[in-house]
């Protein structure tokens, strides 16, 4: 799978002028995002998420390492030809109308006037701003500005979207619509790099995530893999007597009753199957066997808290293998 975005050993140290103070915002980050993939960048404040995005867009220069978009170094403005960006806290010129905003930024992205004529109404409809096309941006609410920002990021039909807190200030219905829009874009092959504090949103939208802490990726992978609790399962069946649980424990499994079901932790898949066979042999009717998962929030909080002891090098983040389900 071709990576549309790749970074290798990306580091950034900010130096304060007239002072010896240095802040290492990024520390050897490796990152790859493939076409059609929705990738989430997580991390506490100051973890290096925005710095990463800014380096990828050429807004900030890396201290070391290299980054490429579509095979072009990020220092080349041409690398941004197929990139749409929605910055956090963006400020469109308030004197422009929504239509003029899309026209100005569309032309700056190389879209022809004739294309814009058709594209602008289509985009305004897509972000539910059709009735606001000729209203000045300064009259827009936060949510409307955010939706206009998304339209502006999409105006030139980009193949990579970099979005910093895209649902900030947007109501729940609007959030859902933005999520759907991102999935639609991903379905047509657009890669999306999503930077958000809203873990539930990341969980609902992203295929893979990376958790940054102090400029390093401390975990990365598919959300299902990160939230999986080994071979822990919710086991429901009848009858479930103490003798059966004792049998499970004798085989080396952990078994405990939790709110009417049994939390069963096996060593591996073979062990799990053996436990199910043993229960069936005792006449137990199995009605549910579900893998237990942590929430992304649990994983995130654990990583950020426990991360203090894990200061070794950055994690390599690669796209999923070809054909692997997302």
């Amino acid at each position: 799978m071709t990576a549309v975005l790749s970074a290798e050993g990306l580091s950034k140290t900010f130096r304060t002028p007239f002072s010896r103070r240095q802040v290492r915002a990024l520390d050897g980050l490796d990152l790859q995002v493939a076409a059609g993939e929705v990738f989430g960048l997580l991390g506490p404040n100051g973890a290096g998420k925005t710095t990463t995005v800014k380096i990828l867009l050429g807004l900030t220069h890396p201290t070391s390492g290299r980054a490429e978009l579509f095979g072009l170094p990020v220092s080349d403005p041409g690398s941004r030809r197929r990139v749409g960006y929605l910055p956090e806290g963006h400020r469109f010129p308030g004197y422009l109308t929504a239509r003029q905003t899309l026209s100005v930024f569309g032309r700056m992205s190389g879209v022809s006037d004739s294309d814009l004529k058709a594209r602008i109404p289509e985009l305004l409809a897509r972000v539910r701003l059709s009735d606001w096309g000729d209203v000045k941006v300064k009259r827009f609410s936060k949510g409307m500005t955010q939706r206009l920002g998304l339209a502006s990021a999409l105006v030139h039909r980009p193949d990579l979207l970099l979005l910093d807190e895209p649902t900030d200030g947007v109501d729940p219905v609007g959030r859902r619509e933005i999520r759907d829009l991102l999935r639609e874009e991903a379905a047509r092959g657009t890669a999306v790099l999503l930077n958000s504090h809203l873990l539930s949103e990341i969980e609902a939208t992203c295929d893979r995530v990376a958790v940054l802490r102090k400029g390093k990726a401390v975990a990365a992978g598919r959300i299902a893999d990160l939230t999986a609790q080994g071979f822990a399962y919710r086991f429901v069946g009848a009858p479930m007597d103490e003798a059966l649980l004792g049998l499970f424990r004798e085989s080396g499994a952990a078994a405990e009753r939790v709110n009417g079901h049994v939390k069963l932790t096996a060593r591996d898949a073979a062990h799990l199957n053996a436990l199910v066979d043993a229960a069936r042999a005792r006449g137990v009717l199995v009605t549910e066997l579900t893998p237990l998962r942590s929430t992304l929030e649990d994983v995130f909080v654990d990583l950020v808290r426990a991360g203090e002891t894990d200061e070794a090098g950055g994690t390599v983040i690669t796209p999923p293998e070809e054909g692997r389900p997302r």
Binding site: L57, G78, R80, V83, H90, M108, S109, S152
Partner: peptide, 15 residues
């Protein structure tokens, strides 16, 4: 160069 404005311009394919 204002924060929130410069990003919108420099993220376009313009030197």
């Amino acid at each position: 160069q204002e924060k929130g404005t410069i990003d919108l311009y420099l993220s376009r394919p313009v030197g």
